[in-house]
Simulated scan of single mutants.
Amino acid sequence: MLISFLILGTTFSLRIWISVVPVIVGMILACYGDVENITIWSLTILISGCFASGLKIVMTKVLLSGSHRYHPFDLLQKVTPLCAIQLTPVILYLEYSGLRVDDSVNLSQWMVVFATGIMAFSLNIANFFTNRVVSPLTLTVAGNLKQVLTILLSIFIFSTKITPLNGIGIFVTILGGADYNRFFQKQKVLNEKL
């Protein structure tokens, strides 16, 4: 919300804040305890990642629906080489040893990398098309609900253990997302009547 305010000049009513705060608090509770030994460095990386994610969503909105009006495929074509340049050193440093082909070819790991790339590409396309028609805040709320769905799926598929506090966080996030959606549906109906 802060990045949207700073870049787009978007202001939010108290009613929107009332809907979004439970999503934020719920996500904090849903993820609480996942990291046992948090350090200043890891916290800095986490906050930087959150800031970068918010900046990406807002800037994508500007480029897809502002005066530039790029098509999602055009924007992806411009962004992908930059992402590849930024990520290649990280991949070579952190991941290459696990994927390196030495005496035995580890085809299954390379297939996982390829499938992950296809899924990431599909996610970016869906994200760009969605970002053209909804606000950055709506996309962020939906992203948080997607994270809750991921947690729920990991509980059912992998029998991931969660604490009661995590369960409360999941519940609060879902309620906040539902309230946010209900509010915007009412706003949409009111705008159509005008």
Rank of each mutant, 00 (worst) to 15 (best):
W110M: 08
P81W: 06
A84G: 07
Y32A: 06
N144F: 14
I57R: 00
T39V: 12
G176P: 01
G143R: 00
C31D: 15
I28K: 02
T10S: 12
L6M: 10
L145D: 06
L153G: 00
L94N: 11
I47F: 13
H71D: 08
F156P: 00
H68A: 06
Y93C: 05
I40V: 15
G54S: 06
Y180K: 01
R15I: 04
S159T: 03
G33R: 05
F128Q: 03
I57N: 08
Q185I: 10
I125P: 09
V134P: 03
I162C: 01
S19Q: 01
S104P: 01
T138N: 08
V21A: 11
A126D: 10
S108P: 03
I40H: 14
T10V: 03
R182G: 04
M59Q: 08
W41I: 15
G33M: 10
L43A: 14
S104M: 12
R182F: 06
V20L: 04
K78Q: 07
S13V: 02
N166G: 00
I57Y: 05
L149G: 12
S4H: 05
S19N: 06
R69C: 04
A52T: 08
P22N: 04
I38S: 13
L94V: 15
N124H: 14
T80R: 07
W110V: 11
N127Q: 15
L107V: 15
E192W: 00
D34M: 12
V23W: 11
S67Y: 09
G26W: 08
S19R: 00
L64K: 02
V21C: 06
P89W: 07
L123P: 01
I3C: 01
K161D: 06
V35Y: 13
T88R: 06
N166F: 04
S65G: 03
S104K: 15
L137E: 07
S122A: 14
L82V: 11
P22F: 09
T10D: 08
A120Q: 08
G26P: 02
F121M: 05
I91R: 09
S53C: 07
L149T: 10
I24Y: 09
I91F: 14
Q187H: 03
G66A: 05
G49V: 00
A178F: 05
S19G: 08
T80D: 05
T160N: 01
I40S: 15
V189R: 15
R182T: 11
G54Y: 05
I174E: 02
I57V: 07
A126R: 00
I38V: 10
I151T: 01
T11V: 02
S97G: 03
F5R: 13
H71L: 02
T130R: 00
M59N: 10
P22E: 12
D34I: 04
K188T: 09
K61L: 01
T173Q: 02
K56Q: 14
L139C: 04
F51N: 07
I28A: 15
L46D: 03
V90T: 12
H71T: 03
G143L: 09
L145T: 06
Y96P: 04
G49Y: 07
S13I: 03
D103V: 13
T130N: 05
T163L: 14
L55W: 09
S122F: 15
S154L: 11
L46A: 15
I40T: 14
V79S: 03
A84H: 09
I168H: 02
K146R: 04
L55F: 11
F183G: 00
A126S: 10
I28E: 15
G167Y: 03
